[in-house]
Amino acid sequence: MKLSQMAIGQKGLITDLQGDSALIQRLLELGLTDGETVEVVRFAPLGDPMEIRVRGYYLSLRRVEANAIVVEPQA
């Protein structure tokens, strides 16, 4: 499942990053590495971008960027 497809409040485990290598590198530097847990906090009023929580801080990113992040949803 892609991170962008998760619902508000849902948590997921990052399993892979796919797509543009510059974007992936930035995401990795920001701590979105394999095995990390991410939580969807909210979507902006117009549905995009979204806010997530990772490694204890809040990050906003667009859906297209969140598409690069493959997650395994947690219960």
């Binding site: 930035r26 920001l30 990113l61």
Partner: peptide, 10 residues
């Protein structure tokens, strides 16, 4: 389109 990765500070 450029990316939009931005920290939301408390």
């Amino acid at each position: 389109k450029p990316t939009f990765l931005m920290e939301l500070p408390p």
